[in-house]
Design a protein around this nucleic acid. Structure first.
Lengths: 146, 146
DNA sequence: ACCATTACTGAGACTGGGTATCATTCGGCC
DNA sequence: GGCCGAATGATACCCAGTCTCAGTAATGGT
């Protein structure tokens, strides 16, 4: 969960207008804990902020992603989702049990990429890494009631 | 590009029926060089093998993925695509210029995953890694005509 | 070679995510 | 307060992927 103000400020700082609908979407995103889909936010919006159009939700999520305070991830089942995050290069570990996600720094990916370049001859420009597993909370919960 | 026979045999070996439409899709997949989408194959099929239903193409691609001779990847733009590959754990480097892809072994991902576990407390169960860059051919082509 | 079983197929309807259009509104600067 | 263009929302639309179901054909047994 991120703070609404951070999201709004990122929009502002990037030179985009801070409008009522964008504020509303930012708030809904901030209230989310783990990963969420555009559809989730659309539902939230319909319930808690009627009057906000579907298209606007999609546009605002795109915007938040562009601004770097939210990132698109692909779940193992191929579904597109978003997670709130800090605007710097990093990856995500996603809990397959509760959906929460945590940012992690590069953790040696630089070396892996270099090794791949050496072996394949490719000039690696970017990569996408997503890790899936069980978060600490769900691990202890699982231990107690298996 | 993979050999049609390998694809067909994988289907057979897994206990599925080797039917005419499946053979046809396998052939179209084998003829593809880089990554391709389901839509690509649907188009190919309509042109070169009229009579094969859209649903069948999707079903067969799923099947090939399940059998492990083809893998689903997510392109940087979020598009779902497939690449032909050997049936073992590995990752892909995808050329953003020509679309060709190459398999690469783990290259130290084990260590990265362990490091992530240490830092985040998550029990990492699986990961998805895709690398994007320029393949050797496109690099030298780019050097010549920039 | 024939048959029976049943997995597989094709056509088309359907769903759901995402985008395009366009008249209207409203944020932000003067 | 007023202007102007960016942003909005309603809706139509598009495309990927799935479901349904009656018809078909690949296997395995004989």
């Amino acid at each position: 969960m991120t703070d609404t103000a951070v999201l709004v400020e990122a929009i502002d700082r990037a030179g985009y207008r801070v409008t009522r609908p964008r504020r509303a979407v930012a708030e809904l995103v901030a209230d989310r804990d783990g990963h969420f889909t555009a559809a989730d936010i659309v539902v939230d919006a319909r319930r808690r902020r009627p009057g906000i159009g579907r298209a606007t939700v999609f546009r605002t999520l795109d915007l938040l992603a562009e601004v770097g305070v939210v990132e698109r991830v692909d779940l193992p089942d191929g579904e597109h989702a978003y997670v709130g995050c800090e605007p710097s290069h990093h990856h995500h570990v996603i809990c397959t049990s509760c959906g929460r996600s945590t940012d992690v720094a590069d953790c040696g990916m630089r070396e892996v990429a270099r090794e791949v370049e050496r072996r394949s001859g490719y000039a690696v420009a970017s990569h996408r890494l997503e890790l899936f597993g069980t978060c600490p909370d769900c691990q202890s919960a699982g231990d107690r009631e298996p």
